[in-house]
Nucleic acid binder design. Structure first.
Length: 574
RNA sequence: CGGGACGUGGCGCAGUUUGGUAGCGCGCAGCGUUCGGGACGCUGAGGUCGUGGGUUCAAAUCCCGCCGUCCCGACCA
């Protein structure tokens, strides 16, 4: 492509109010344009990157036996009602009506439709299957943000494994795991795989791939000395045993004006250190009030509460003060579970077996001491509820846990039979018995992956694309396009590189050199060859590698062969 | 949804407090001088001031409604 003819509208001023570097660089570099909140146009440069990422994914999916298909994204609401997700997905599902008034939904993931297709399978002999597509997904996000990182319309590679039994599911899951490792590596990312919560997707096990980045929204815990790593929505840590002494009598005592864990601990250090208190929170889960108990120095991880309660994604919220007063007769600060009956009480496992604890008495300005959790509180469900914090100890080897933030670039789920049962996808085994097909579901967001690459690879001058996903692999920067000999050389090089299979951009614009250098760096082309009168004179080409701005020289006679080889080697990405 | 802010040529902004009929930088077009790290001169094109209503002799400016966008909190690829 000749730059002078290309639609590459770079801007040199950053868009206001976005904290994500990738957003600024992709807009400034002329890769994307925003149309509406969470809705983006891919300009030619962006589209080229998008296609290359898609091709990497396609190659790796095909390599594990995937078959590509394409499903509609406009679905009858009936299908979502059938799987139970019409309500479960809440407002995130785009819902609309056609001219006849029939309810429709826009696909936000497609387990349902693949489940319907899977009902065309009848025999174990047809399994396993790996089906995938790359297609638009719609999600009515409450808050689109950070450019491409969180949008309402995006492309997902979603794939689905279909198996007769659990070992088969495991194999399909592992194949995807391996494929994802390769895909992200080829894209130039170093995403790590972490244990995750399955959320609204259901299923038994899931792993997220997280690219470390401040722009991300996923919090992850990793052990500094072993391989333990998990999303905080699921992460656990080891606790030191606390010696509570002998159990004792339950006793009320006055605590005028003491409303916080901290205040109570400071005024009664002997009996109410934070780890000797029971923190009582009231949540409304799926419309029902729930009393949530944690150790005083621990914080609630809401996703864990949702998982424990089997509630939908947006199914939990803290109760309002007036709801709490009506339920327990006291205000936050004096709440407790001692003697409470009739509502669900979910307690964190860190409280199991504890005695001589302190907690609110459900009367303002009064607390209990000597609480024996097992004896005095009618816990209806024990669960892991607390959020792991930085610096805690690993459950596997006692190592230090680090808490960090990243971008979720992929997520793989072991689904089970929920969707195959809902849509009647059963096959017969060799004995003639029918079994629901066991499904797995696997997703990668292309545009988010693109933004993640930029987040992971940029400098003050702009983007640094890896060759594998760069919009162009090489830019020929012509210093004096008005000089005949220079332009003739540039044209020849352009043709020769193109013939050699290099994705080459010829910067033949009538611009000053500084502008061209700066632009090529902003849009992040991995290799630049400067072609000017000097080079025509000397016969020596100047090559600048974008990464590290490493400069080298080659005589023009060797240039095409040597540089094409270098690019060829880097193209695969690993 | 709760809280905060903003909406003015393509982009980034000033003007709003104190109403008087729109300006700056970049970009764009033409001509000329330039040209190995973001050049300069001259000329010029381009604006329903988000939108609907109200107040006023007069509204970008004051009042009300609506729409949109961004940021902070609860969700996901």
């Amino acid at each position: 492509m000749r730059w002078s003819q290309a639609f590459i509208p770079t801007l040199r001023e950053a868009p206001a109010d976005s904290e994500a570097v990738s957003h600024k660089l992709l807009v400034r570099g002329g890769f994307i344009r925003q149309l509406a909140a969470g809705s983006y146009t891919m300009l030619p440069l962006g589209q080229k990157v998008w296609l290359k990422i898609g091709q990497i994914i396609r190659e790796e999916m095909n390599a594990i036996g995937g078959q590509e298909l394409m499903l509609p994204t406009l679905h009858p609401a009936e299908i979502w009602r059938k799987s139970g997700r019409y309500e479960l997905m809440g407002d995130n599902l785009f819902k609309l009506q056609d001219r006849k008034g029939a309810d429709l939904a826009l696909g936000m993931t497609e387990e349902e439709i693949f489940g319907i297709l899977a009902s065309e399978l009848f025999s174990y002999k047809q399994l396993p299957q790996i089906w995938y597509q790359m297609h638009t997904k719609f999600r009515d996000e409450p808050r689109p943000k950070s450019g491409l990182l969180r949008v309402r319309e995006f492309t997902m590679k979603d794939s689905y494994t279909l198996d007769i039994d659990l070992p088969g599911l495991d194999r399909g899951f592992d194949k995807h795991h391996d494929a994802y490792v390769r895909i992200f590596a080829r894209m130039g990312l170093d995403a790590v795989d972490v244990e995750a919560s399955s959320g609204a997707m259901g299923g038994s096990e899931s792993i997220e791939f997280i690219q470390r980045s401040e722009a991300g929204e996923a919090w992850v815990v990793t052990c500094e000395s072993c391989d333990y790593r998990a999303n905080v929505e699921r992460a656990v840590s080891a606790l030191e045993t606390i010696d509570d002494g002998e159990t004792s009598e339950l006793e009320r005592f006055p605590t005028p004006g003491l409303r916080t864990i901290k205040a109570l601990a400071e005024s009664h250090p002997d009996i109410a250190a934070p780890d000797r208190q029971i923190k009582s929170l009231v949540y409304v889960v799926d419309g029902e009030p729930v009393l949530v108990l944690l150790r005083g120095d621990h914080d609630l991880q809401e996703q864990k509460l949702l998982d424990a309660a089997g509630a939908p994604e947006d199914g939990a919220r803290p109760a309002r003060p007036e709801e709490i007063r009506e339920l327990l007769g006291a205000d936050p600060g004096s709440l407790g579970a001692v003697g409470v009956t009739g509502i669900e009480i979910i307690a964190d496992r860190a409280l199991e077996g504890r005695v001589n604890m302190t907690t609110g008495a459900n009367e303002d300005d009064w607390h209990y001491k000597g609480v024996d959790v097992g004896r005095d509180i009618g816990v209806t469900k024990w669960a892991d509820l607390r959020e792991v914090t930085d610096g805690e100890r690993c459950v596997k080897d006692g190592g230090r846990l680090e808490l960090w933030k990243g971008i979720e670039v992929g997520h793989i789920f072991k689904l089970g039979t929920e969707y195959s049962e809902a849509f009647g996808a059963y096959v017969q085994d060799p004995e003639g018995a029918s079994h629901p097909i066991i499904m797995g579901s696997y997703g990668i967001g292309l545009e988010r992956g693109m933004a993640a690459v930029v987040e992971a690879s940029n400098d003050d001058n702009g983007i640094i694309w890896p060759v594998s996903v760069a919009p162009y692999e090489l830019v020929l920067t012509v210093i004096r396009p008005d000089d005949e000999a220079t332009m003739a050389l540039a044209n020849k090089l352009y043709d020769d590189f193109a013939t050699a299979g290099v994705d080459v951009l010829l910067d033949d614009r009538d611009e000053r050199p500084g502008v061209k250098f700066a632009d090529s760096e902003l849009i992040g082309i991995p290799y630049r060859v400067t072609v000017g009168p000097k080079g025509v004179e000397s016969g020596v080409a100047e090559i600048t590698e974008r990464k590290g701005m490493v400069k080298s020289e080659l005589v023009f006679d060797d240039l095409v062969a040597a540089l094409s080889d270098r690019i060829e080697e880097a193209r695969f990405g690993i």
